[in-house]
């Protein structure tokens, strides 16, 4: 499904170069549940940004469904993010001025789905995370767990082939953490491809495959 070959990423601030990724290769098949674990500063965030098409690699090749997208334009990458990737962030990243319903609706709007279809899909996505009755609430009126479930609904509403979860439980209490992990595990059982980025070993152990990153390189990979 995605295939990264020898990815490097170099940040330049003035004359100082910083190598965040030093040649990382990774293959994720359809239906995989993969976790990427590493301490802060390990380069895992950079790696996740590149996988998520939020950033482009300095060098290397990135095949998304067999197409090399490492040289894609910003607009083309925006389209991939919109159609192929569902993001779940640590801090939920919901738009505070919009209701839960409108937040979930947003990816469909950018995709150009017409109103009737859009509303049907949003309703279904919110029902799937059990929050349809809260559809008119603003994010600030919801608990952390509920907010993350809205964010998951937003990630799923467009039915993307890849789901990218960046510390999805990092800001949650243990009960909400369990709920959110259950939803993610459930998605995996239904056939979604999931990449989970975390620094928490316990969370990472939920995945079938676990990759450890340190100093910009993969140094360990184990299967469940």
């Amino acid at each position: 499904m995605i295939n990264l070959k020898d990815i490097t990423k170099i940040y330049k601030t003035g004359k100082i170069e910083f190598k965040a990724l030093k040649g990382v290769s990774l293959n994720v098949d359809k239906g995989d549940f993969l976790s990427i674990i590493g301490p802060s500063g390990s380069g895992k965030s950079t790696f996740m940004n590149i996988i998520g098409c939020l950033d482009v690699p300095t060098d290397g090749e990135y095949y998304f469904e067999d197409t090399d997208i490492s040289k894609y334009s910003k607009n083309a990458l925006a389209e991939i993010r919109n159609k192929k990737i569902g993001f779940i962030f640590q801090k939920f990243n919901l738009l505070t001025k919009l209701s839960a319903f409108e937040n979930v609706e947003l990816p469909l709007i950018y995709r150009g789905v017409d109103t009737k279809k859009r509303h049907k899909k949003v309703k279904k996505a919110l029902e799937n995370v059990g929050l349809y009755k809260h559809k008119d609430h603003k994010p600030t009126e919801l608990s952390g767990g509920q907010q993350q479930r809205v964010a998951i609904a937003r990630a799923l509403v467009a039915k993307p082939p890849l789901i990218l979860a960046d510390e999805p439980t990092g800001n949650l209490d243990s009960k909400s953490e369990e709920e959110v992990m259950d939803i993610i595990k459930n998605l995996h059982r239904k056939g979604s491809t999931i990449v989970l980025i975390t620094h928490d070993l316990e969370v990472a152990k939920n995945a079938d495959r676990m990759i450890s990153i340190k100093d910009g390189m993969i140094y360990d990979e184990r299967m469940k």
Partner: peptide, 16 residues
């Protein structure tokens, strides 16, 4: 800025 980032992450293009 954050809002713009979120919008872009979920697929807003420059034009949007």
């Amino acid at each position: 800025t954050k809002e713009i980032g979120i919008r872009k992450a979920i697929g807003a293009k420059r034009k949007d």
